[in-house]
Computed example of a mutant assay.
Amino acid sequence: MRLFGALYARALVWARHPQSVYYLCGLSFVEAFIFPVMPEVMLAPMMLGKRHRAFFYANLSLVFSLLGSLVGYALGHWAYEGIRPLLSDGMQQTIGTWVEHLRADMAQHWLAMLGALMLAALQPVIPMKFVTWAAGIVGVPLLPFLACMAIGRGKRVWLLALLVRLVGERAEQILRKNIEWIGWAAIALLGALLAWWLWPR
């Protein structure tokens, strides 16, 4: 089933719309906490259409991704606190132990934690929504969290802008060719991580 190919095709329609800038802002915002398609699928054709505005589009997407990251962070925190009383005692203990372990690691190795967050925001395999929710659950300090998201996601969109300026349509062709694999790989990885997290120990 070509789910992500269809979503990609829809994003291309949005990219060519007269109100494409608003669609880009919306997609960048919701992708950070719920939507499965990364904003690069709109960024690439928009940048190709107006190469001189490539970095403007990149910065616009970055700003709205950061706003969405705040929503994901809040959802992670409040969803965890709201759902915890509904879980069985064993599940509460398992998840509570995992969260406390991460919090202890964060306190002891905060530089490594910041580096991991930046890498998570930079690479496209682990969905950004998983990173923002997890940060909210664990309680990563808000300002360092936003700084890591800005650096990691900023490198992604700026690199795309640079690629478009340098190699043009080849950048979009590479994304189009691999979008299905990237999308399903991200879903599979997210499922595996959730299964590992919730598996009783």
Rank of each mutant, 00 (worst) to 15 (best):
G72T: 08
G72Y: 05
Y73G: 03
L75A: 12
G76A: 00
G76M: 01
G76V: 04
H77D: 10
W78G: 05
Y80A: 09
E81S: 13
G82C: 06
G82S: 12
I83M: 13
I83H: 07
R84D: 14
R84A: 15
P85M: 11
P85L: 09
P85Q: 11
P85F: 11
L87E: 12
L87R: 12
S88H: 06
D89T: 02
D89M: 07
D89A: 13
D89V: 09
M91I: 07
M91G: 00
Q92C: 04
Q93M: 07
Q93S: 09
T94G: 09
T94V: 14
I95M: 03
I95L: 12
G96C: 00
G96N: 02
T97A: 15
T97S: 15
T97K: 10
V99A: 01
V99P: 00
V99N: 05
V99C: 01
E100Q: 12
H101W: 08
H101R: 11
L102T: 02
R103C: 00
R103F: 01
R103V: 01
M106R: 02
A107H: 12
Q108S: 04
Q108K: 01
H109V: 05
W110F: 15
W110M: 09
W110D: 12
W110S: 14
L111C: 02
L111A: 09
M113H: 11
L114T: 08
L114R: 09
L114F: 14
L114D: 10
G115K: 04
G115L: 08
G115D: 09
A116E: 00
A116I: 06
A116G: 06
L122H: 01
P124W: 03
P124Y: 06
V125C: 01
I126K: 11
M128K: 12
F130Q: 11
F130T: 13
W133G: 10
A134E: 10
G136T: 08
I137M: 15
I137C: 06
I137N: 07
I137G: 07
V138I: 15
G139L: 00
V140T: 11
V140C: 09
P141G: 01
L142H: 04
L142G: 00
L143I: 14
L143V: 14
L143H: 06
P144V: 01
P144F: 05
F145V: 07
L146H: 03
A147D: 02
A147E: 01
C148L: 00
C148K: 04
M149L: 14
M149W: 09
M149T: 10
I151V: 15
G152K: 03
G154K: 07
G154L: 10
G154T: 07
V157N: 08
V157F: 14
V157T: 08
W158N: 15
L160G: 03
A161C: 05
A161G: 10
L162E: 11
L163Q: 05
R165S: 10
R165Q: 11
L166Q: 13
V167E: 09
V167S: 01
G168S: 05
E169D: 14
E169R: 14
E169H: 13
E169I: 12
R170L: 13
R170K: 15
